[in-house]
């Protein structure tokens, strides 16, 4: 495996000691996905989908990798395309931040900006139109419908959590964009850890500030989503996620993005509800680092 591909995964679990200080019977861990070489959890599914494309001959010399993304999958594709020698073209909603665009340009990816009113659904429509118009030109992983997306987490993220908690994980909490992380990790945990509970985080409304995550009630449901995996759902307000994002930086030394704040907010809410007569181990995902969001107003709070 190419060096940068081999550097993906095996991220540490970081215990949130200060934010979870109010619930000493609950160990709350964030899986530090921002330490992946492309800076996010999306390195895992991007690697899996690209390797699968290579193995099946769908991605071969002369092809361009095309994907619809709100940022992190595009950054992962751009990094992997650079490492493997494939051009990368990304459909990105125009309201994706300048941080995302800066990372993508640094890796040499080309961008097709799509309507900011239509979010990632609009970006995915544009990508499908481009593939339909020039089917021989592109390798289109289609992260919303590609089983390699959730399998990447089934084979890596989930087993790593089981290993690093010595099988003691009691709860897994995560929100969803494509749902790959939640679906794949939950399936792996449920297969390995009896009684584990998987809690799905959702933005509280259709307009929200959870970069990379979708409010499922108001957007297209990804083909790979499996609603039967969620044992409970927690809705989190954007303002709460931003507050937790700031606290992660200032009280835990974890400089992460707002979706990590949303996940941790949900993990803390869950921890507060767990019975005190026994110990619990709650694991959530620190999806990406804070650098891409440095220009955002929420740091000022």
């Amino acid at each position: 495996m190419h060096d940068v591909l081999a550097a993906i995964g095996n991220t540490p679990l970081v215990r949130l000691t200060r934010l979870a200080a109010g619930t000493p019977h609950v160990a709350v861990y964030g899986k530090a996905e921002f330490l992946n070489p492309g800076g996010s959890v999306k390195d895992r599914p991007a690697r899996a989908m690209i390797l699968d494309g290579l193995a099946r001959g769908l991605l071969r010399p002369g092809k361009t990798i095309l994907e619809a993304t709100s940022g992190n999958t595009g950054i992962a594709d751009a990094m992997l395309g650079a490492a493997l020698g494939f051009p990368v073209l990304l459909c990105l909603p125009a309201n994706a931040g300048p941080g995302q665009r800066g990372f993508l340009k640094a890796f040499g990816a080309q961008l097709v900006l799509t309507s900011p009113l239509e979010g990632t659904d609009g970006a995915a429509r544009r990508a499908r139109e481009m593939v339909a118009a020039e089917p021989d030109r592109f390798f289109y992983p289609d992260q919303y419908a590609n089983d390699e997306n959730w399998r990447a987490h089934f084979t890596t993220t989930g087993p790593e959590i089981v290993r690093d908690t010595a099988g003691r994980v009691t709860h897994f909490v995560a929100g969803s964009g494509t749902s790959g992380t939640f679906v794949g990790t939950s399936r792996a945990l449920k297969a390995a850890v009896p009684g584990v509970s998987c809690v799905w985080m959702q933005p509280s409304g259709p307009l929200h500030g959870f970069e990379g995550m979708k409010h499922y009630a108001s957007t297209e449901i990804p083909a790979i989503y499996d609603a039967t995996l969620a044992d409970a759902t927690l809705e989190i307000e954007t303002e709460e996620a931003w507050e937790v994002t700031r606290r992660l930086a200032r009280e835990e030394g974890l400089f992460v993005g707002p979706s990590s704040g949303g996940n941790v907010a949900a993990a803390l809410r869950l921890a507060a509800t767990l019975p005190k007569d026994r110990e619990h181990v709650v694991v959530t995902i620190l999806c990406d680092g804070g650098a891409k969001y440095l220009g955002e107003r929420f740091w000022e709070g």
Partner: peptide, 12 residues
């Protein structure tokens, strides 16, 4: 135009 701000920022 009412534009969802993906991460709370505003862009040029």
């Amino acid at each position: 135009s009412i534009v969802p701000s993906i991460a709370g920022g505003s862009h040029r």
